[in-house]
Each structure stands twice: as structure tokens, then as C-alpha cells.
Design a binder for these strands. Structure first.
Lengths: 134, 134
DNA sequence: GCTTGACCCTCTAGCGACTAGAGGGTGCAT
DNA sequence: ATGCACCCTCTAGTCGCTAGAGGGTCAAGC
């Protein structure tokens, strides 16, 4: 209801940086707003809603392209939302895979770190483990 | 023992791409080798060892800067290896934090996805959750 | 000896998603 | 009228590569 926001107000209202908003405009993620007499961007409530959507999706780790896709789907309100479900599922699965990768990595590091006897570098197990043939 | 590798052989021996090796040379991570008459890079065993170290550390998720630091420490063989331990610990902790973040994210997505009734987009809970006052 | 094809060279630009900085204009309060 | 916070555009930097253009080298086969 509070129309006509400056870019700074919009940034504050959504927890986004001013530069990021201009960037989103540049890549066509957020539509370019009207300009004031002094060439300032003047945002309306529609922009605020759009940017909130973007922020939330980005916070959930969706890529810019996925956000674009989700917004495209969200605008076709009479269609089935199965496509939305698919995007969300793909993203969740990718995250689960990344968690598995990182867990394996952390475990390997645990082994390395536990083997450290804190002597000199010459017989450091961590360095040894990294350098295959010393 | 098998001296004088071409960049392609070195790449094959370490599982690195040729372009990546040239990149490592450019940023000063791997020392520039001698050149043949035809201006080809000619690598020696020392390079092979160095690159293997780099690869292994990178595979464990260490950043380029951390690899640089670890190599610097590895070369001072009479020093204490506590500094090595510190770098490894910092990295492991950062990974654990990232895992926690991603787990929270995946759980949020689970809730969203479970709420999807596969009806129209107009009453899609996923879209609703993204758009705060849609 | 000439061609083919695999390999090598340099240089530049691109990816994702911003972030930072230079160099300047606007708007409002004192 | 002066100061200051805010806004504008444009360019370049971040990280760790990757890809492509446009060329040179080398060994093998005919």
C-alpha cells in the first residue's frame, strides 16, 4: 500500500543490497521501474512483492535461473503446480547430494587431523597425506 | 624418475586438465617449467609431486590460498606442524558449518514439498510460501 | 616429402552472483 | 548556501576455473 519506494527503501524493506537490486534489474530478474524527475528509480508494491519472492527463493538456495523459472510458473495461476514441485524437488536433491559430499570430506579431514602429533612438519601426517611420495 | 613430462602427460598423471595446469602456473601456484626448443613446457618429477599435493588438497576442499599456505608450511620441515593443524581445523569447521546450513535448508524444502497438493498454481503452497503476501 | 591429426602455444572472454569503486548528480535540512 | 545522505552510470574485481579463437609443433603413415 505504501507506493513509491526509493531503491534504498526497497533494499531496507527486503534485506537486499542496493547494488544487488540494480543487478537484478540489469539481468532482467526484476522489471525496471519508472524514474523520477531526478532520474531516481521509483518502485511500487508490485516490485516489493517480486523482490521478496526472489529473496526468499535465493535464501532457500535456488539459483537465479530457478528463481526465473519459479516466477514464470507462479504467474500462470490456472496451471498445475506439478512443475513447481519438480523444481523444488530437484533443488532439494541437489542439496542432499552436496551435504553427502561435504560430510565425506569432513570425515576425511577428521582422520587427518586426529593423526596430527604436533611434532615437526617433517613427520606431520597431514602433510604426508597430502604429498603422496614425500 | 620419469623426467620431462609434457603438459598433457602431467595432466594425465595427476587427473588435472591442461588448462588448469596453465592456470596454476599463471597464478603462481605451480612454478613455471623449462621450455623445449619448440616452446613446449617440460615438467620434472618435482612438478609432478607439487601438482599432486595441490590436487589432493583441492579435492579436500581447501581454497587456493589455503593450498598456498599449506605448501609454504610443508617446505619448512623443521618447524612445528601446529600451523598445519590450524589450517586443517579451520577448514573442517567451515565445512561443518556449511553442512549445518544446507541441512536446515533441505529440511525447509522438505516441509514445502510435503505441503504440495499438486493442484493449480493458484493454491500451491510452495509458491505461497515464497510470496509472503501474494 | 607431404599430409594428417594429436598435441601444444598465447590471449581473451565467459561462468554465477554479486561486490566495490570512481566520478558525478539529487534532495532535503540547517 | 552548504553539508550530507542518498542516488546515478560504468567498469572492473572476486573465485577457480573453462572455452574458444587463431595459430605453431611433432611424429607417423603414405
Amino acid at each position: 500500500m505504501s507506493d513509491k519506494l526509493t531503491i534504498g527503501k526497497l533494499a531496507g524493506a527486503t534485506g537486499t543490497k542496493v547494488e544487488t537490486i540494480r543487478y537484478y534489474e540489469q539481468i532482467g530478474l526484476l522489471p525496471a521501474p519508472e524514474r523520477s524527475a531526478g532520474n531516481y528509480r521509483t518502485y511500487e508494491d508490485a516490485h516489493l512483492r517480486r523482490l521478496s519472492f526472489i529473496r526468499r527463493a535465493r535464501d532457500l538456495g535456488f539459483s537465479i535461473d530457478q528463481v526465473r523459472e519459479l516466477m514464470g510458473l507462479a504467474d500462470r495461476r490456472d496451471q498445475s503446480c506439478i512443475a513447481v514441485d519438480v523444481v523444488a524437488n530437484q533443488h532439494r536433491d541437489a542439496i542432499r547430494r552436496k551435504i553427502a559430499d561435504l560430510t565425506a570430506l569432513a570425515n576425511e579431514l577428521d582422520v587427518l587431523i586426529d593423526s596430527c602429533t604436533r611434532n615437526t612438519v617433517a613427520d606431520c601426517r597431514i602433510i604426508e597425506a597430502l604429498a603422496p611420495s614425500g
